[in-house]
Amino acid sequence: MRTDSENYYNQIVNKLKNWARINSPWAIHFNSGSCNGCDIEILATLTPRYDVERLGIKLQGSPRHADVLIATGPVTLQALDRLIRVYEQMPDPKYVIAVGSCALSGGVFDGCYSVIGDLNKVIPVDVYIPGCPPRPEAIIFGVVQLLDSLKKGKKPAKFVVPNDIPDFKLEEKSNGNN
């Protein structure tokens, strides 16, 4: 049985957690077969003109430190299990942003033999940013969309290991060796 005061305390803690999450999204960037275009635009958002650090966004190197996975490019068969591995290495709660037309649908690469095409088929995506590549402003806009949805109480999506992708078997769960 919980008393009212405990409930109240929990509410405050949850609010604080949510506030912290919104104000400090640390991102990790993974390229799963992109042409570089989106990657350099993501890098450009860190630089003085756009400077996402003022929104609390920091690009981290290790998946263990990150909250948001920014994935670009159509998912190639080679990069597939790396992508899932990076996603699994991230601690909960985690969110995924798909950047660029390729990550959304395959773009021009839709139909190539070694491309799965849609990031959504592999891992659950929270925000889609179309564009080839999106302008850095558009990427910032997408991140703001994610933060807005967090404000409204969005829960991270559940990850299901994809079974319907041919030529794919998940390696045994990584023990942290990157």
Binding site: L16, K17, A20, R21, N23, S24, P91
Partner: peptide
């Protein structure tokens, strides 16, 4: 402060 609170609230692997 936000970074720290967020990290404290996260899953520890």
């Amino acid at each position: 402060f936000a970074d720290t609170v967020k990290l404290l609230a996260k899953e520890e692997i």
